[in-house]
Amino acid sequence: MMTLTKTDRTSWLLAGPMTLILAAFLVLPILTIIVVSFWAFNEFTFFPAFVFDNYLFTLTSKVTLATYLKTLQFVILTWVFCTVVGFTVAYFLAFCVKSLAWQVALFLLCTIPFWTSNIIRMISWVPFLGRNGIANSALMSLGIVKQPVEWLLFSDFSVVLAFVHLYALFMVVPIFNTLIRIDKSLIEAARDGGANGLQILTNIIIPLAKPGIMIGSIFVVTLVMGDFITVRFMSGGQSASVGRIISNEISLLQYPAAAADAVILLVTVLIMIAIMMRFVDIRKEL
């Protein structure tokens, strides 16, 4: 073993606690999940074995494909709306609000809803969007519709709406963070060079905001991929998602099946993130 220099030792000491925590609370549980995913189970218990049945069933079931497609649909829609909303809000905060005090104040305002539980924020949509809810009574008293609009609640619309509401801030924060660090003189130089607003946006601001957009996207994609409670409540239990399948399996004591599904989900999400990282090298550009 080579002798450690002082800086080496310091870096080991600094990295040590985090390494231990990650090993104990992340790597170990994931390894356990992987091991259990090969176990066998019956109605009330599961036991060590080495079988591929859990994977085989999931990978060959029609439901899996349909569920993944549905979940991906939620991911894409949520991502699109979150990005648009997140970027717009961040742009407003970074460029339209001039004073730092106001920027901070408005930014904090964005986080106020996060002081309550996200389940509460989600469920509060239910009475709002319902058949006799505020949205429908407003639409009807304005004479826009005669019958209550049914698809407002317990539909894909309501699921995506809740997702966007819950996760838009995860976009706002990182995008705001990158936008605020854009050198204002770059924009001035572009304007001096004759660029119009749209050109500045597409040629300077968006490229420079890419790392922020990507970090926000990773948040949104992973959160939506793993969600089970929002889909259940907002679709009225009528839509499936990968997370719901896993939670169903757990409630039916099918832990090995749930573990196998969790592993498949994990791999899927890792692949998605790997693909996203191909577009933006976060470490280089941050």
Binding site: K62, V63, A66, Q238, S239, A240, I245, N248, L252
Partner: peptide, 10 residues
């Protein structure tokens, strides 16, 4: 249970 899950996912 499998069939029921298919029903929910359908």
């Amino acid at each position: 249970v499998r069939k029921w899950n298919e029903f929910v996912a359908a």
